[in-house]
Simulated assay, not measured.
Amino acid sequence: MAQLEFYDKHNMVAYLVKSESSEGFDEIIDFLTSSHIYYALTENPIIFVSLIEQFWETAVLSTTEEGLQAISATIDGHEKLTFAIT
């Protein structure tokens, strides 16, 4: 498998403002601005490679009592990022 690398262009942020150049995209901008992913699109947090490596080294797929699949991982000794996959 090839060595994976991070590139600056993968960490670009979005500017979700309405302007003449974004005409026709107002509904999409409204949706994204009110969405729970707004922060992820507009902020540029520092992400440490060691945390990503810990996630992938400890990630486990399981099935919940409701029959949904869930991913969980342990980062710095704490179970994190548990979410159901629909």
Results as ranks from 00 to 15, higher is better:
1 M>K: 07
64 T>A: 12
4 L>I: 04
54 Q>A: 14
27 E>W: 06
26 D>G: 09
23 E>Y: 06
83 F>C: 06
23 E>Q: 10
24 G>I: 04
24 G>C: 02
86 T>S: 13
24 G>F: 05
16 L>R: 03
28 I>V: 15
37 I>H: 01
53 E>D: 14
66 E>H: 06
65 E>P: 06
72 S>A: 14
63 T>D: 04
5 E>A: 09
77 G>L: 08
57 E>W: 03
67 G>E: 10
6 F>C: 00
69 Q>Y: 15
67 G>A: 08
34 S>P: 00
51 L>E: 15
9 K>H: 12
24 G>E: 03
40 A>V: 02
11 N>Q: 00
79 E>W: 00
7 Y>E: 07
26 D>V: 06
82 T>I: 07
26 D>K: 10
58 T>M: 05
45 P>S: 09
47 I>A: 10
42 T>L: 03
52 I>L: 15
70 A>T: 09
64 T>H: 06
84 A>N: 13
22 S>V: 11
46 I>E: 15
56 W>K: 05
77 G>P: 06
74 T>F: 05
52 I>M: 12
38 Y>T: 08
60 V>A: 12
71 I>R: 07
3 Q>I: 03
32 L>A: 09
29 I>T: 02
30 D>A: 06
53 E>Y: 06
51 L>P: 00
53 E>F: 04
11 N>V: 00
66 E>C: 05
25 F>M: 11
41 L>D: 11
45 P>F: 11
61 L>P: 04
80 K>C: 14
15 Y>I: 12
86 T>Y: 13
82 T>G: 10
68 L>K: 15
35 S>K: 07
37 I>C: 11
51 L>Q: 14
21 S>D: 13
11 N>T: 00
56 W>P: 00
73 A>V: 05
58 T>W: 06
12 M>V: 08
68 L>E: 14
83 F>Q: 06
20 E>M: 02
32 L>Q: 07
12 M>C: 07
43 E>W: 05
38 Y>L: 09
14 A>S: 07
24 G>T: 02
15 Y>R: 11
4 L>F: 04
26 D>Y: 10
16 L>S: 02
6 F>N: 02
11 N>P: 00
12 M>E: 12
65 E>S: 14
80 K>L: 10
14 A>Q: 05
76 D>Q: 12
4 L>A: 08
40 A>H: 08
74 T>Q: 07
72 S>I: 04
65 E>H: 07
77 G>I: 09
12 M>I: 08
30 D>H: 02
35 S>C: 09
2 A>F: 03
67 G>Y: 08
33 T>H: 05
81 L>C: 15
84 A>T: 12
68 L>V: 03
35 S>V: 08
26 D>F: 08
80 K>D: 03
11 N>A: 00
33 T>W: 03
